[in-house]
């Protein structure tokens, strides 16, 4: 049997309540249920988290690094979007 044919799933773990789920890796499985079991077995063996998300890899739409300028332009030419742009006198520091 060709295991490469099994669909790929991405695994996200919430390490602690209150935090976001973070991507930890991927695995092959027959379906969501099995992916969940595998994820538990592979990624949560040392109490790494309290919650798992498994997502079919083919459902993920990703941008490319070459798109970075259009997508994530930090707009460094707009320094007024940062608090440090505004000089405040010491007397009113708590702002």
């Amino acid at each position: 049997m060709n295991h490469n044919a099994l669909p790929l799933f991405e695994v996200f773990i919430r390490s602690k309540r209150g935090l976001d789920h973070r991507h930890v890796g991927s695995l092959h499985a027959e379906d969501h249920e099995q992916a969940m079991e595998y994820a538990r077995d592979v990624y949560l063996r040392r109490s790494e988290g309290v919650s798992i998300w498994v997502v079919n890899s083919s459902d993920i739409v990703a941008s490319q690094e070459s798109d970075v300028e259009q997508f994530y332009d930090p707009m460094d030419d707009k320094p007024y979007r940062h608090a440090t742009h505004y000089d405040l006198p010491d007397e009113v520091k708590s702002m």
Binding site: Y80, R81, H82, A83, H85, Y86, V92, M95
Partner: peptide
């Protein structure tokens, strides 16, 4: 509530300049 708390953390970070530009 987790999602509310996380949204607030993001918002506070971005909003730091709003008050200052007004005061200025």
């Amino acid at each position: 509530y987790g999602p509310y708390s996380r949204a607030m953390i993001r918002i506070c970070k971005e909003e730091s300049f709003h008050q200052r530009q007004g005061y200025q």
